[in-house]
Simulated assay, not measured.
Amino acid sequence: MATTKQEDIRQGLKGNPRLKRFLDYLIMNQRDARPRWYIRLLAPLYQHRGRGSKIYRSVRMDTPPYRKFSLGRRSVVESFCCINNAVGDVIIGDNTRIGIHNTIIGPVTIGNHVNLAQGITVTALNHNFQDISKKIDEQGISTKPIVISDDVWIGANAVILPGVTIGRHVVVAAGAVVTNDIPDHVVVGGVPAKIIKQL
């Protein structure tokens, strides 16, 4: 129900770009590309945090209220992570651990019993660059949702790129760069990641 209301508001703002720009100015610090301090103070009112979950104090929570952030029961976001839902919802399931120094940029859905080791980047965002007559930072961005299914272990310093779906009971080796969908019950590794073992 709340999601439907949020979507209705988003659609309404699309029809009024001037109001959208004004609200975006009030909510987001454009230079720092993060919510303004007074919005961050209100975060506990609009973020969903499941019972027994924990977000360490050093985590950078770039979670404006116009997108969804949900952390499941008994899940943990460890120190020095950056969670950003400014361009897409970030949904994290139950009993999931987001390791030290991870960066997650939505739209991303992470399942239950997922373990992300250290230094992982999960980004559904790309900068547009095709028009050579414009600077890259003038061309906007595009997003493709990422889905990490239940019971996945991702090794340190792996990178998960836009549009990828990772199946159930998958191991992603340390340092892998995942550019394509991964089926259930495999180990993948390399750059780009390829199946190296069936489970």
Rank of each mutant, 00 (worst) to 15 (best):
T63S: 13
P64N: 09
P65H: 05
Y66M: 13
K68D: 09
F69E: 07
L71R: 11
R73M: 08
R74N: 14
R74Q: 11
R74Y: 13
R74A: 08
S75K: 02
S75V: 00
V76D: 09
V77K: 08
C81Q: 04
I83H: 12
I83Y: 08
N84M: 04
N84R: 13
V87K: 12
G88K: 03
D89N: 10
I91P: 07
I91F: 04
I92H: 03
I92P: 04
D94W: 01
N95I: 01
T96V: 06
I98A: 11
I98H: 01
I100W: 09
H101W: 06
H101E: 14
N102R: 04
N102M: 01
I104P: 12
I104G: 10
I105K: 09
I105M: 12
G106H: 03
G106W: 01
P107S: 05
T109R: 13
I110V: 11
N112V: 05
H113A: 04
H113I: 00
H113M: 08
A117T: 06
Q118G: 07
G119N: 10
I120E: 02
I120W: 00
T121R: 14
T121I: 15
V122F: 01
T123Q: 08
T123H: 07
A124F: 00
L125E: 13
N126W: 04
H127W: 07
F129E: 12
F129H: 15
F129N: 14
F129Y: 15
Q130G: 14
D131L: 12
I132Q: 12
I132M: 11
S133Q: 13
K134E: 15
K134Q: 15
K134F: 07
E138Y: 07
Q139M: 09
Q139E: 11
Q139P: 08
Q139G: 10
I141L: 11
I141Y: 09
T143A: 09
P145F: 01
P145Y: 03
V147T: 15
I148Q: 00
S149D: 03
S149A: 13
S149H: 11
D150A: 02
D151Q: 04
D151H: 15
V152N: 02
W153K: 02
I154D: 02
I154M: 04
G155Q: 01
G155S: 06
G155Y: 03
N157Y: 12
N157F: 09
A158M: 06
A158D: 04
V159P: 10
I160D: 03
P162S: 14
G163P: 09
G163Q: 06
V164T: 12
T165L: 08
T165Q: 14
I166E: 05
R168K: 15
R168V: 07
R168S: 11
H169Q: 12
H169G: 08
H169S: 13
H169T: 06
V170R: 04
V171E: 00
A174M: 07
G175Y: 02
G175T: 05
